[in-house]
Simulated assay, not measured.
Amino acid sequence: MKHLFARFATKISEWAGKPVIFILALTAVIIWAALGPVFDYSETWQLVINTGTTIITFLMVFVLQNAQTRDTRAIQAKLNEIILTSHAENRFIGIENLDEEELKRLDELVAKAAKGRGETEACRVSEDLKAVVPKKEELRKRRASAKPAKQK
């Protein structure tokens, strides 16, 4: 069932992102607006567009979120592989699990290092990173505690 929904979500998100679908949606709104005088701008006339757009939006949130989450996980796995096979700091693996404050601090430190203030500055920033980015063991513990326990 999971694979079926994943394939469905991927196809729908690809389909919904096409220009022709936008044009169809715009055409539907134009037709609805043009029918306003025919229906004397009644509450039913307004309810048609409100109900239709609400239902479509509600369902698309779940479909698009599923597709985006899978894409994000795939990108994260690729980035982790690049980190592992390069001379990059392995501590960056799993930083997506940091809290907002830790990510902000890490962003500041990386931006500081990117300014290229010489090797001494880069070494100091690398040491600062070790203080901000938890070790892999700590990240594993965080992930394990964040996952709900499986019910038997």
Score class of each variant (00 low, 15 high):
residue 138 E to R: 13
residue 99 D to Q: 04
residue 135 K to S: 09
residue 136 K to M: 07
residue 116 G to T: 11
residue 136 K to T: 03
residue 122 A to E: 07
residue 134 P to G: 12
residue 100 E to A: 12
residue 121 E to Q: 03
residue 132 V to N: 06
residue 132 V to S: 03
residue 114 A to M: 08
residue 137 E to C: 04
residue 122 A to T: 00
residue 105 R to V: 11
residue 103 L to Y: 00
residue 126 S to L: 11
residue 101 E to D: 12
residue 133 V to Y: 00
residue 111 A to E: 05
residue 119 E to R: 14
residue 131 A to V: 04
residue 127 E to A: 15
residue 96 E to T: 13
residue 134 P to H: 10
residue 104 K to L: 10
residue 108 E to Q: 14
residue 101 E to M: 08
residue 125 V to A: 13
residue 138 E to S: 10
residue 125 V to W: 06
residue 112 K to Q: 06
residue 128 D to T: 02
residue 142 R to C: 05
residue 103 L to Q: 11
residue 145 S to R: 09
residue 110 V to L: 10
residue 101 E to Q: 12
residue 123 C to Y: 12
residue 119 E to D: 14
residue 127 E to I: 14
residue 96 E to F: 02
residue 144 A to E: 15
residue 107 D to W: 01
residue 136 K to H: 12
residue 128 D to F: 11
residue 109 L to C: 02
residue 107 D to Y: 02
residue 105 R to T: 14
residue 126 S to I: 04
residue 102 E to S: 15
residue 131 A to I: 04
residue 129 L to R: 08
residue 142 R to F: 02
residue 95 I to K: 00
residue 99 D to K: 07
residue 119 E to F: 08
residue 122 A to N: 03
residue 131 A to E: 07
residue 127 E to D: 15
residue 100 E to T: 12
residue 110 V to A: 06
residue 123 C to Q: 08
residue 125 V to N: 04
residue 147 K to N: 10
residue 144 A to G: 11
residue 96 E to D: 09
residue 142 R to Y: 03
residue 99 D to A: 07
residue 100 E to G: 01
residue 129 L to P: 01
residue 121 E to K: 02
residue 127 E to K: 15
residue 121 E to Y: 02
residue 147 K to D: 06
residue 143 R to Y: 04
residue 114 A to R: 08
residue 129 L to A: 12
residue 107 D to P: 00
residue 114 A to F: 04
residue 139 L to Y: 05
residue 147 K to A: 14
residue 105 R to S: 13
residue 135 K to G: 12
residue 103 L to F: 01
residue 137 E to K: 10
residue 116 G to Y: 12
